[in-house]
């Protein structure tokens, strides 16, 4: 369990401001945010590897703010794996045992279990130099878990791996977490990873934690323009609310429910915006005619920008839809979206 209270860190290039965070025992917590947001700094602060300006960090109810890193029971796995190059895989894995009083029988059992679960038996006597990314990653995990840490910090552990590999390791990670009572705190840039692994997540920006919650709630109900933009809510408009309606630019949108505030933002995921030739009359409460201003190729799908009055909506469409509707820049088209797809804050 980790509790962080009013944590401030001021280093030359990195700052953290008023971090408050609660992570429960055996939770899988994911930290996301743009590069330079301070995610790694937060991990290193929890591990005790960088000096804290003010605030406190508790691990299992114990204040560890001033405690040396070797006394915290926090293991860390870096993106570059950071294996000791002069030690064999076996020596890397058991490195931490030199400093822990764990009886031989128990440590042997842990070692065998980790080697088995992470499939490392065939490389135990090799040096890290010639191992593949996936192998290095598994060794780093084994080394970190060998000392029975209370908390395992993972700094983008999967991002340097081949995409094909990632899925496998992700599944392995999930199993490791399920089979242990270690608290996992992982930094990632990958939404798929975050969605499949995390119990809860936190979004960071500019040294602050902006929003925490389950990944799904963050995805569907961002509470700031930054998070909305970060999770891909490309339709984000400042709006005035009156009754169950919102007005933005020259158009009026039916929200289906009355928002709490009188003005704020409305956000709609681009995949929730449907394009059609004719006006749709279904449960779609909102329907506007507009013109396509741009179409861009994103590989698996296309993104279209549609100008309605003075507002540009972004919509994701498949290639077949693009062909069926004969869309091109300048085409007149109708955009529709359910009022339930609209998030206001």
């Amino acid at each position: 369990m980790i509790r962080i209270r009013d944590l401030n860190i001021h280093l030359k290039e990195f700052n953290l401001f008023n971090i408050n965070l609660d992570i429960e025992t055996n939770e899988f917590f994911v930290l996301m945010g743009p590069t330079g947001a301070g995610k790694t700094v937060l991990l290193e602060a929890i591990a005790g590897l960088i000096p804290v300006k003010s605030g406190s960090i508790y691990i299992s109810e114990k204040n560890v703010t001033g405690l040396a890193p070797e006394k915290r029971g926090v293991s860390i796995v870096y993106q570059d794996y950071s294996l000791f190059p002069h030690l064999t895989v076996r020596e890397n894995i058991i490195y931490g045992l030199h400093f822990h009083k764990i009886d031989k029988e128990r440590s042997d059992e842990t070692f065998d279990r980790l080697v088995e679960n992470l499939n490392l038996s065939y490389i135990l006597n090799r040096f890290p130099l010639n191992l593949s990314g996936g192998e290095l990653q598994r060794v780093a995990m084994a080394r970190a878990l060998m000392v029975n840490p209370e908390i395992l910090l993972l700094d983008e552990p999967l991002s340097a791996l081949d995409p094909g590999f990632r899925e496998e390791i992700r599944a392995g990670l999930k199993k490791l977490h399920r089979d242990s009572n270690v608290t996992f705190l992982m930094v990632t840039h990958d939404f798929a990873e975050a969605l499949s692994l995390s119990d809860r997540a936190g979004i960071m920006n500019d040294g602050k934690i902006i929003q925490t919650g389950t990944m799904e709630s963050i995805f569907k109900r961002p509470d700031s323009t930054f998070v909305a933009d970060f999770v891909g809510m490309k339709n984000l408009f400042a709006a005035q609310f009156h009754g169950t309606k919102a007005s933005t630019g020259n158009i009026e949108i039916e929200l289906g429910a009355k928002p709490a505030n009188s003005h704020g933002y409305i956000a709609i995921r681009p995949e929730d915006i449907v394009l059609s030739r004719e006006e749709l009359t279904s449960s779609m409460r909102n329907s506007f005619a507009g013109n396509i201003t741009e179409i861009s190729d994103h590989g698996l799908y296309y993104e279209a920008g549609i100008m309605v009055e003075n507002i540009t909506f972004k919509s994701l469409i498949t290639k077949s839809a693009l062909l069926d509707l004969q869309l091109a820049e300048g085409t007149g088209i109708v955009v529709s979206f359910k009022s339930t797809a609209i998030h206001t804050f």
Binding site: G48, P69, E70, G96, H98
Partner: peptide, 8 residues
């Protein structure tokens, strides 16, 4: 840093 976190 890793070494420290492992107890050294």
């Amino acid at each position: 840093k890793v070494s420290r976190s492992l107890g050294a």
